[in-house]
Each structure stands twice: as structure tokens, then as C-alpha cells.
Design a protein around this nucleic acid. Structure first.
Lengths: 334, 334
DNA sequence: GACTAATTTGCATTCCTATGCAAAATCAGC
DNA sequence: GCTGATTTTGCATAGGAATGCAAATTAGTC
């Protein structure tokens, strides 16, 4: 409709030059007088600076690309919300891309992100191919992996203490007096999945126990439910560590309702993440908390530094979590 | 790092003019020969058009602003995912804004959206003030309300059949042989909340029943749980309609675990939305399906039309849902 | 009031791509 | 091979805002 109002229009109305208008809105020096005139004229005309034009010249779009998968896992909408708030407070905005759950097509997504001259890219739980890695590096765009590591990757990463966390879970289950331990892993093609499996294993060994069975739950409800059933029925496990809460809920549904075993009397189940839903009375899931607030804060802080060209002291940030005792696993008797 | 590769660079490398490069990438006419040369040079240099510069001149940013609240209600991440996929397929991208759960500050958000020259704005479950309405209208940016109506609003809107849906729920509960009906409303300051309350009421009346009590659940778990408890303990309701699944889960948790009543033997609970979680075995919630796939499809289609300057035949689109019988409400005996 | 230092201002240019226009090249037809 | 029609190409400019530079204005000092 009404043609766009430009800084030219404001300049004319205020009786100053276009540069003056620009200076007022970009916070550069300007006299009180000009400030007032320009602000007034801008308000009258309904002028707002065109961010796209601005970024063309400053080279800063103030846009962060966020690639996210697994939105059905409550951990991610929750993190998204936090990212959104934190970044908006810093004047950044989020261009969002949802990746297919298994990471194909990510390369294409990121190409499109680069087209938008994003100032940085955050990949939540999404891996990046080598080819893409070099393209992003060549473009000189900071990138950060969230809740996902990648060995040999040049990018920053923020995760929880997957290794020690699952170690502690193993310990907890051993102390709970269980006998046969099973693990419903996250997708073992992901570093996070691998780390948690490794930590759990090491934790068991460290306490003289061992794994009776492990299945890949692929971060999917169906696969996890199936895996749990097998571990209980075939391997006769009485303690299950499920690699994230999202799958753990499926496991609980399967065991309680379909298989018909009592949790935790017959089988203990421990998750990982402590998403809000884990505290809901119907599940009341014993789990390991990934502090998403602190993870997001760290990720944002790091990203801002990277954008500013600083080299953060440490590229791989690990936020410590904590075991949350609830009612799906037998409590150790002290 | 390496300075950005521009169309100039490609032109030089390919031995053609900058305009030629532009034409190749924007699909305008160009000879086979030039096409090949340019494509080759672009590939060598790793050139990709700068979308921001392009949109500056075309006036189309290919960005859609999406304002979303209540991300803890699974309905919205789910919808977000669908929006993302649908819009990406059409070459659009999403700038996402999360609104505080009660809608203050939305005006500010949308101002920032406008700064980015978005081609359109979708507000999911978020109301818009009158002042903002006129600003958006003045800017000539198409806007669409998703899962939220607004009387007298000039904007397009896509909702489910809230009125007839909750009417059917009332009917279902009456036929189930219940005696005292309670309603845990959505936030009654929202049109959706009002409509569902109204439909439920009318449905009861139409079958000779009436409402024994209603509380505002404010779309929050805590408020809903409290409301349900009151309706059961004080109003002795044996049938509850909860205005969305998100609250219904809280109600089930409260009633089963905290209050200790049997669902559906003592109290029936029906939700609204049919989010994926409603089908999970632990809840197995009887509810009314809002077909988010069709709602999103309709929203996207309408938005594209609006952007193209077409006037859609109908501004208020209502997608019919369906009652999903599960196990939290007594089944009517035919 | 004169003279220097410090601010403020405007001019002109830049960021990168798309596009109207005119010139150049290609094609078609005889 | 020539003419006219059509396509391809390059030139120049636009789109909106930021910024280096120099000119103009103001403030500061004695």
C-alpha cells in the first residue's frame, strides 16, 4: 500500500540530510536539536529503519540461524524458547530451520542460511557433514553445536556432562540393588548417544556390574519402546537407562501399559534431560538434569563472542547436570 | 575471513557482466553459453546470491514472521514444524518470535518483525492490539491469526470449529450418562477460550443438561489443575471438558494422583486438540482433534495468496475436527 | 571578540543485486 | 548475403542506510 517510508522522506520532513537521520537511528553523534526534529518527523511518518538495507552495508544482519530437529522432544521447544528470549534481548533475531530427524538435508538448509547472511549458526542436535563444515568455515560464519558434539569439528559446542552424567546414573542403579542392567541408547550415530552409552558402561564396570543388553532407540518412541520390551523380556533386565526423557516416556508407557510390569518395583527406569514433563505426576521420572537454561546461556554467550571475533578460551563447553531422584527407579537404601 | 564473493567476482571470473550473473541466478533469460560459464565460475568461487541485497531491490524478503506463544503446549511445536516445512518448500523462511504467554509485548515484537521487511506475519495463538493492527495495515503487510480469532479484526484467520467441536463434546458427555458437567476453560480473554466455552454450554443446553461449574484454566497447568480439583470436590462434577489437551494432562495428573479419583470411572475428562501426546498410553486422552496439518496448510495457502495480493474468498477459515474416543471418558452405550 | 578545539552536518560513495533501456549479437527467411 | 525480428548482453541506475571526509557550526579559552 503506502510506499515505504525511507530515511530520505524523514530527512525531507525534518529539514535535515539523510545522513543525519541515519545517525540518529544508528546511535551516532547528533545534536539534541537534530535528534528531536528527526525523531518527531519519523514518528509522524511512521518511519523505521530498514534492517535489510542496514545490514547490507554494515555486514551485520543481526540474524542467527537456528537449526533444530526433534521438536517433538520437549527439550527442544524449551531450548528454542530460551534461545529466542536470550537472543532477542541482545538484539538478535532467529531464522529457524527444522531439520528432518535424521540429519539428511542439513547441508541444503545451511546453504540457505548462508544466503541470508546470518551472523551465526546454532545447530541444535544436528550433525554437520565435512563438506558443509568447510563451506561454513570458508564463509567465515561462526557456528556452534548445541547438545551435540562432533569429534574433530572446528566449531564450538555446548553439551552437558554426558559422560559423567551417565556414569552417575549407572552408579545410582547399582546402588539401588539392581541386577541386570539394560540401556536404550540414543541414536548411536550421534556423539551424544555414544557418550551416554560409554559413560553408562564405564559406570557399571567401575562398580563391578556390567551391561546385560543395549539397543539403539534412535531417539524415537517406537524404537525405544520396542527396545525396552526386548531388554525386559529377553534380557530380563530390572534396570533400564534410557538415553533421553522423550524415549523414557515411551518406555514407561510400553512397560506399564503394554507389557504390564511395575515400575519401579519390577523394573527401574532412568531417563536423561529432565524436561518439564518428567516432573508431571503421571510419569514422575527419575532422570539426569541437563540444565537447559545454563546450556542456552553458555551457547548464546559463546556465539556472541564468536561474532565479535573473539576466540573463546574453550571451544567445548560442558555444563554439569545433576541426578534428579523421582519415582521410576528404586532408591538406594543408604 | 575470505571477503564475501559477489556477483562482480563471478562476472569477472566468467568474463561476463554482473548483470549476466544476476540473470542466471534470478532465472531471467540468458544464453546456454553464458549460463554454463557463470555456473562454473560461481561453483569455483563458491558464490551464492546475497538474499538481503536481492530483497532490497525486489521488495520481497521471502521471510515470514512467525509469532508463537505457549511452546510448552505440544500443539505449537508441532505446528511450527509443519509451518517450517511447508514454507520452506515454497521458498520462504521463518523469522521466529516467541511471545510471553499472555501477550504483552507483542506489539514490540511485531515492530521488530516489520523492520525486517517480512513478507507476511503469522500470529499463532496471540492477540493483537488495535494500535498495532493499524500499524501493520499501514505497512501493507499481510497478517494471519492462527488458532485464534479476533472479532472485528481485518486479518485473515484460521481456526478449528471451536463452536461445533465443543458442542459435540457436550453431546458426547451427555450421552455418556454423566450428571454434573464442569468446564476448565482456556483463557477466557482469548476468542478461542470463549468459543469453546460457548459451544460446550450450548451443547449441554441443547441436550437438556447444564453447566455445574466453570473455571478459567488460563492455558496453564497449575491453574487448570486447581480448577479441576475445585470442580470435582466442590461442584461434584463427574464430567469435565478441559479446553485443551495441555491443560487436560495436568487435570489428569491432579485427579488421578493428587485427588485420587478414578478416570473415567468416577470422573470423565475430555480435552481439545489431540496433540500427539494424547495418544500416549499413560494418558490415552479422549479429545477433539484439531487437524493441525490441515490448519497449517490452509494458513500457508492463504498467506501466499495474501502476499500475491489476491483477496481470498473467505477471510475466516474454519477447519472441521473430529471427536477422538479414547479412555478418559465413559463411552456412551448405544 | 578573536582564535583554536571539538562537534555537528552534508556530500558523495559504498554495500550487492536486479532491471529498464539501448546496443550488439543471433536467428529466420528468402 | 541481406533485412528485419528476436534474443542476449552490458551499461547505468536504483533500492535504503551507513560512513569517511571535508565543510560548517558550536563551544571553549583568554
Amino acid at each position: 500500500m503506502s510506499r515505504k517510508v525511507t530515511s530520505q522522506d524523514v530527512a525531507r520532513a525534518a529539514g535535515v540530510s539523510q545522513s543525519a537521520v541515519s545517525r540518529v537511528f544508528s546511535g551516532a553523534s547528533a545534536s539534541k536539536n537534530t535528534q528531536a526534529k528527526v525523531r518527531q518527523a519519523a514518528a509522524d511518518l511512521g518511519y523505521r529503519p530498514n534492517v535489510l538495507a542496514r545490514s547490507l552495508i554494515t555486514g551485520q544482519s543481526k540474524i542467527i540461524g537456528l537449526v533444530v530437529a526433534y521438536l517433538d522432544n520437549q527439550f527442544y521447544p524449551d531450548a528454542l524458547q530460551r534461545f529466542s528470549n536470550a537472543l532477542h534481548d541482545l538484539g538478535y533475531h532467529i531464522l529457524i530451520f527444522t531439520a528432518k530427524t535424521r540429519g539428511e538435508g542439513v547441508d541444503d538448509l545451511i546453504g540457505r542460511l548462508l544466503d541470508y547472511q546470518v551472523d551465526g549458526i546454532i545447530c541444535a542436535s544436528v550433525g554437520v557433514s565435512d563438506e558443509l563444515t568447510s563451506r561454513v568455515e570458508a564463509a567465515g560464519i561462526p557456528m556452534l553445536l548445541f547438545n551435540r558434539g562432533q569429534t574433530g569439528s572446528p566449531f564450538a559446542q555446548v553439551t552437558s556432562d554426558n559422560l559423567s552424567g551417565s556414569h552417575k546414573i549407572a552408579e545410582y542403579l547399582v546402588r539401588g540393588g539392581h541386577e541386570r542392567f539394560g540401556h536404550v541408547a540414543g541414536w548411536l550415530g550421534s556423539s551424544t548417544g555414544q557418550q551416554r552409552a560409554k559413560g553408562f558402561n564405564q559406570g557399571l564396570e567401575a562398580h563391578g556390574a556390567h551391561l546385560s543388553g543395549q539397543r539403539d532407540g534412535l531417539y524415537s518412541r517406537e524404537a525405544a519402546a520396542q527396545a525396552a520390551r526386548e531388554l525386559v523380556e529377553q534380557e530380563r533386565c530390572d534396570a533400564l537407562f534410557v538415553s533421553n526423557d522423550h524415549m523414557a516416556f515411551a518406555v514407561l508407557d510400553e512397560l506399564r501399559v503394554k507389557v504390564g510390569v511395575k515400575v519401579p518395583e519390577e523394573v527401574s527406569v532412568v531417563g536423561y534431560d529432565d524436561v518439564p514433563m518428567a516432573a508431571w505426576a503421571s510419569y514422575d521420572l527419575t532422570t539426569y538434569r541437563q540444565p537447559s537454561n545454563r546450556m542456552v546461556a553458555a551457547a548464546v554467550e559463546t556465539m556472541i563472542k564468536l561474532i565479535a571475533g573473539e576466540v573463546p578460551e574453550t571451544k567445548e563447553i560442558e555444563i554439569p547436570g545433576a541426578l534428579i531422584e523421582r519415582s521410576t527407579a528404586r532408591w538406594p537404601k543408604e
